[in-house]
Design a protein around this nucleic acid. Sequence first.
DNA 1: ATCAATTGCGTTATGCTATAACGTGTGTCA
DNA 2: TGACACACGTTATAGCATAACGCAATTGAT
Lengths: 145, 145
Amino acid sequence: MNAPVSSPASTPALTKNQSLVFEVLNSSDAPMSAYTILDKLRDHGFRAPLQVYRALDKLTEFGMVHRLESLNAFVACAHPNSECCSTGHGHHGTVAFAICESCGHVFEFHDHQVDHRLGDWAKGKGFKPAKTTIEIRGLCEACAA
Amino acid sequence: MNAPVSSPASTPALTKNQSLVFEVLNSSDAPMSAYTILDKLRDHGFRAPLQVYRALDKLTEFGMVHRLESLNAFVACAHPNSECCSTGHGHHGTVAFAICESCGHVFEFHDHQVDHRLGDWAKGKGFKPAKTTIEIRGLCEACAA
DNA sequence: ATCAATTGCGTTATGCTATAACGTGTGTCA
DNA sequence: TGACACACGTTATAGCATAACGCAATTGAT
């Protein structure tokens, strides 16, 4: 009984572990590390980091979760139904993040011009992009005040 | 005899450890992790990670070294004398990196329009950027062939 | 039906990345 | 000369991530 469970349709069917991990991330205001997620799920039978990492890998592949490289942490996608996400297949955008170093809040956004500009640079150099990371660390409006 | 040694002028005076770490990074084609640097410097008396991390912190502050967040690794700045670098003070740019996942080579570049665009987004949101990371992972021209 | 391939899962062990906390020596400068 | 700042060395520990094993369930082709 480890197979994915059918679900409402739009989002891919998630397994139990994937759902649990996503729930935890999705109800958090701030990014969480894999180990923090693990701790939140001990009551649900999670014992080892790999259980979390495996779920995170899939969720990331589905475009439901993003990894923040500068934080070694993860957030639920803020625009789950937009085409900007999903590494899996047809997408046309890179997601950018602004991360408040005071309150931890993450703003996710997308900018076509930045995309095009980076894409043009790559074209000019013959570089084939696979994944692009854009992260702005700083202070959000509320915290900068 | 632990104080910085005076040097040619343009670059800040580096201590012995800082020079050693910078030399290692600067003569490498690809980014290196702190621990790889440590191994390269065992012959020079390095014993502990902190010796490397402390030097890297300073070199980064001087703008002579960049940290690649998506790799947990470090590279020597490719444009040491440009104003684009140096987190320390007056600079106007964010550096972007294209990282070849096959050969490991890193291309460092700068794009004002990307900068402005991200800056505009931040202004609009009242977000105060402190440090911006832009990293494109993919395949360089030679490796994509 | 059944066998092979695939995928998810659980567990143990391990490896890599980074920092805390302590004490030492040295140069600066009021 | 005493307070301070800074670089350094060492030990210990914290935090992030994956390798390698074996089992269970599902899928799909023959």
